[in-house]
């Protein structure tokens, strides 16, 4: 099977997820040259972040509060050696509480929420920590197979320090009965699927406001100090 070199990642062709069949590369990947392995990623600073970008419970408000269960999603971004990835961009997007995306092509017959947009971003701090406020996303149906439903999930996109650190992924919620039926999550080798599950964390819960989920992210590549690079 034609797979990315890192064994945690899903293979390019994974027939239970039908869209992979005509879209995944079929020829073996070529080795990356050393100059690429050390190539740094673009750096995005505070200039791309606005006041409520990290707070999806506020950044889409038109005339009231968004509907659904408010949650905190927080965690750390670190490299393979456990070093924090500081000041790195985290972008997220998700469905609303009813399982409906703002996206114009989303035809799911569930209500849009006029006060919820579903997109946001933030930078990690000096310790590699990030924190979003949002609404717990709903499950939604899709056309992959009969009665197919995506488990609750939040999409994330990160750059990290090097071009090989680039990661686009999805975060899931613990105990979701749809997880075992989802060919997208199950594209990940079984041993590593747990890495995409967030954990309910009472300590992240904010009294009278929101429940808390922790999702820690580990990016490929060594977090070199300026001295080493």
């Amino acid at each position: 099977m034609n797979s990315p070199v890192k064994e945690v990642h899903p293979p390019y062709i994974f027939p239970p997820y039908k869209s992979t069949i005509l879209r995944g590369p079929t020829k073996p990947l070529l080795p990356m040259h050393d100059s690429l392995r050390s190539l740094r990623a673009p750096v995005f600073g505070q200039s791309v972040i606005s006041k409520f970008d990290h707070d999806l419970t506020k950044n889409g408000i038109v005339n009231g509060e968004p509907i659904g269960e408010r949650i905190v999603v927080a965690g750390t971004v670190s490299d393979e050696s456990g070093r924090p990835v500081k000041n790195t961009l985290v972008e997220i997007w998700q469905a609303n509480a009813a399982g409906r995306y703002v996206h114009k092509v989303d035809q799911h017959n569930a209500p849009l929420d006029p006060n919820f947009f579903g997109g946001g971003r933030c930078l990690t701090d000096e310790m590699g920590r990030y924190k979003f406020y949002t609404i717990k996303p709903g499950a939604y149906p899709w056309g992959n197979h009969a009665n197919a439903w995506r488990p609750n999930h939040i999409h994330l996109s990160l750059f990290g320090n090097h071009i090989i650190s680039r990661l686009v992924t999805q975060m899931y919620f613990p105990g979701d009965p749809l997880l075992e039926h989802d060919p997208i999550l199950n594209g990940v080798p079984k041993l590593y699927r747990h890495l995409l599950l967030s954990a309910f964390k009472f300590e992240l819960t904010e009294e009278g406001f929101a429940l808390g989920y922790e999702f820690n992210i580990v990016l490929a590549g060594k977090n070199k100090t300026p001295f080493e690079s």
Binding site: V8, P10, G82, Y101, G119, S157
Partner: peptide, 19 residues
């Protein structure tokens, strides 16, 4: 000691308003 990196997932069909 190397930690397992976070696995990749598809960007999906509905990325447009997000990124």
């Amino acid at each position: 000691n190397k930690t397992d990196i976070t696995p990749s997932q598809t960007v999906g069909p509905f990325f447009a308003y997000g990124i």
